[in-house]
Design a protein around this nucleic acid. Structure first.
Length: 695
DNA sequence: CCCTGCGCTTTTTTT
DNA sequence: AAGCGCAGGG
């Protein structure tokens, strides 16, 4: 079975029992080892379904599933396959079985990042401490951090000492209350409640941990505290836990991932066997050398040195451009050159090429150029299908139909498209609902008799509710795709699009995404064993959006890839363009101020080690920011890769100086307001960080 | 209640 | 540059 493996890989694959830590450097055949190991376990007589393999993305899970199946060949249909899924999907399955014990409904919905933003925005409304305020995204990160530590809202209020934390804690209380009353869970809840179940109910822990005899985890360096504890529960009984990862590729520290989990694995599992994979099969020596030179600048890491199996290779290019437009133009021109058939080198197709960047705003310019050059491309992540306004609208309708308690969605669709239900009436209803302590949905009917709501408006609200009710009664009867189509026509959404958007192309593209939504419903119904609206919604929020709408798989197969470094982890391409390698972007300015440059360096390392044959690193002299051109400093990582540490040091100094100065300027800009406001306001703000709420 | 337009803020990565 | 909130006219 295990053929073509080197000695280290062989050892990892053949160690079937007990704890096993595989420290696998970039490009050392990590995925191969996991899949071979799964196959080996099955060969040795383990029932496939008793194996649980966990990944961080659906894409990785899907790929692993396919590879394992291929390795195993045809299996009788009545034998269940190994369970290969993401942490989050696993938790959803566990919760669906036991969550009622925690007082949550079995039919919970999952709120994604967009919903979280909306909730956070609401929760922060009217909350401030003096002049301090919090951005929704910061609140979300903060809450996520608390949840990772299993800190409840009330506990957060207790433990918060500084102003910002107190403020966040107050918002956390509201945020969590809103989630609960909507019958919704966010991503962190999925993990947190699973742990709670395991802690509170030994029988649940027993039942769930008895389902498997072997647990494997990919990208272990990115596990956070919750995931770590869940895994511990799952593997405690049998101890057959195999984790695979690379501390140099830990790039999710901001999400609570702790490298210590992988660094201390041998301590937590004293019997653990440790295997190191250090032979890199992916990159040409010239590229790997660059990566090695870069990463040794990190102080906290397992000391290791990767060896290139593929000698030589073209020297990586470092190119400077005038600005981001030039960068996109020239990179795309270079891509086109590469794609042009030539007799003196092997053929290159778009799917051999990836353009990698740090932030999600960077691809815009590249998209434009690629379209102009007629090169097929896919953008991974970023503004995805499910983030488009029209799709979110319709999804909100579907959610209200599936779960009328979902207040966020209800508020979104109540007057979308405009149907004469104004903010005034909605406020009144909300107050009424809060008074009675029931969901907003329940009081909709009362709007006809409510003194503060006009008769006309009341009628329209009831009409809306009846429409939703009629769709609810259709659930389980006909096809979901048909229901969605009917929904679109009965709320006249297309007319709304035509009214809102001016250009024909925009209307067309928005209409197209609605069609796509209907198609994905149809597709879901076809492939799901037991299709339900709730099931579709669950899949839509959990599945990383890109592999979700695989409508034209073929087109995708031949497309160039645009993606962030975070999304690129685990992938490889013959040609890689790493763009925007400048101080402030990579390392990101925020990391400089927060002292997390080492993680940025690992990010850069991940980028460099994605390349198999050709690597191009580029940076700009200046870049547009908020409509203004700003000078850019080439990243210290570039100097480090070239071995000029002195210059890197100077650059680091200069960048830190510049960004701290900017930060000060920003604060200055805000300060005068503070003074004038204080002067003009009648009552002075409380000195203690008391949370002010408007009634 | 709906729409438009003005001014103000925006600064990361993702399941 | 772009999205959001808010004020003011229909």
């Amino acid at each position: 079975m295990a053929t073509g493996l080197n000695a280290e890989q062989h050892s990892a694959v053949k160690t079937l029992n007990g704890p096993l830590l595989v420290l696998a450097g970039a490009g050392t055949g990590k995925t191969r080892v996991i899949t071979f190991r799964i196959a080996e376990l099955i060969q040795s007589g383990i029932t496939p379904s008793r194996i649980l393999a966990l990944t961080f993305t659906n894409k990785a899970a899907k790929e692993m599933r396919e590879r394992a199946m291929k390795l195993l060949g045809k299996r009788p249909r009545n034998i269940l396959p190994p369970e290969i899924s993401t942490f989050h999907s696993l938790c959803v399955r566990i919760l669906r079985r036991h969550i009622t014990r925690l007082g949550y409904p079995k039919e919970f919905v999952i709120y994604d990042r967009g919903d979280q933003e909306a909730l956070a925005r609401n929760a922060l409304r009217d909350i401030r401490v003096g002049q301090e305020k919090l951005r929704p995204s910061d609140l979300i990160n903060k809450i996520s951090g608390w949840k990772t530590l299993s800190v409840s809202p009330s506990k957060a209020v207790d433990v918060s000492t500084d102003d910002k934390d107190q403020l966040a804690a107050a918002a956390y209380v509201r945020y969590q209350a809103a989630l609960k009353s909507s019958g919704a869970l966010d991503f962190d809840d999925l993990l947190m409640l699973t742990e709670e179940l395991f802690e509170k109910f030994p029988e649940v822990r027993f039942a769930e941990s008895s389902r498997h005899d072997h647990v494997l985890i990919d990208e272990y360096q990115d596990t956070n505290g919750l995931q770590y504890r869940i895994v511990k529960h799952l593997a405690q009984a049998h101890g057959n836990l195999c984790v695979v990862g690379d501390d140099d590729q830990s790039i999710y520290g901001w999400r609570g991932a702790e490298v210590t989990h992988i660094l201390n694995f041998a301590r937590h599992w004293p019997k653990a066997k440790v295997v190191r994979l250090q032979q890199n099969y992916r990159s040409k020596a010239a590229i790997l050398e660059l990566a090695n030179t870069l990463i040794v600048n990190n102080k906290s890491r397992h000391d290791k040195q990767l060896f290139a199996e593929r000698e030589g290779g073209a020297a990586p290019r470092f190119i400077r451009f005038d600005d981001e437009t030039k960068e996109a133009e020239e990179v795309v021109r270079d891509v086109r050159d590469q794609l042009t058939p030539s007799s003196d080198r092997p053929r290159v197709v778009p799917s051999d090429i990836a353009i990698l960047f740090r932030t999600n705003e960077q691809p815009r310019v590249f998209e434009l150029e690629l379209r102009r050059a007629k090169i097929p491309y896919v953008i991974v992540g970023g503004l995805s299908f499910f983030d488009r306004k029209e799709v979110r609208d319709i999804m909100a309708y579907l959610r209200v139909i599936a779960n009328p308690k979902d207040e966020l969605s209800l508020l979104r669709v109540l007057n979308t498209p405009p149907r004469g239900i104004g903010t005034g009436s909605i406020e009144t209803l909300l107050e009424h609902a809060v008074e009675k302590g029931v969901p907003l949905w329940t009081v909709l009917g009362a709007s006809l008799t409510h003194p503060d709501i006009g008769h006309h408006t009341g009628e329209r609200i009831v009409q809306f509710q009846n429409l939703m009710l009629s769709f609810q009664s259709q659930l389980g009867k006909g096809s979901l795709a048909d229901l969605a189509k009917e929904l679109l026509s009965s709320v006249n959404y297309k007319a709304e699009l035509e009214r809102t958007y001016k250009t024909a192309t925009e209307i067309e593209s928005r209409t197209a995404s609605l069609e796509e939504l209907v198609n994905s419903l149809a597709q879901y119904e076809q492939q799901a064993e037991n299709p339900s609206l709730l099931g579709f919604l669950e899949e839509a929020s959990l599945t990383s959006k890109d592999d979700y709408k695989d409508e034209d798989e073929n087109k995708k197969k031949n497309a160039l890839t645009l993606m962030t470094l975070h999304s690129a982890k685990g992938l490889e391409f013959p040609h890689v363009y790493l763009v925007g390698v400048e101080e402030g972007i990579m390392p990101h300015r925020r990391s400089l101020l927060e002292g997390t440059v080492e993680e940025e360096r690992r990010l850069c390392y991940v980028g460099v080690t994605r390349a198999q044959d050709h690597l191009t690193i580029s940076f700009c002299k200046e870049r547009m920011k908020w409509g203004k051109a700003r000078a850019c400093i080439p990243s210290r990582f570039i100097m480090e890769m070239r071995g000029d540490n002195e210059k890197a040091e100077r650059v680091a100094q200069a960048a830190l100086e510049q960004f701290t100065k900017e930060k000060h300027e920003e604060e200055e800009r805000k300060a005068p307001k503070k003074v004038s406001k204080k002067a003009s306001s009648k009552a002075k703000k409380p000195a203690s960080p008391a949370v002010k709420k408007k009634a």
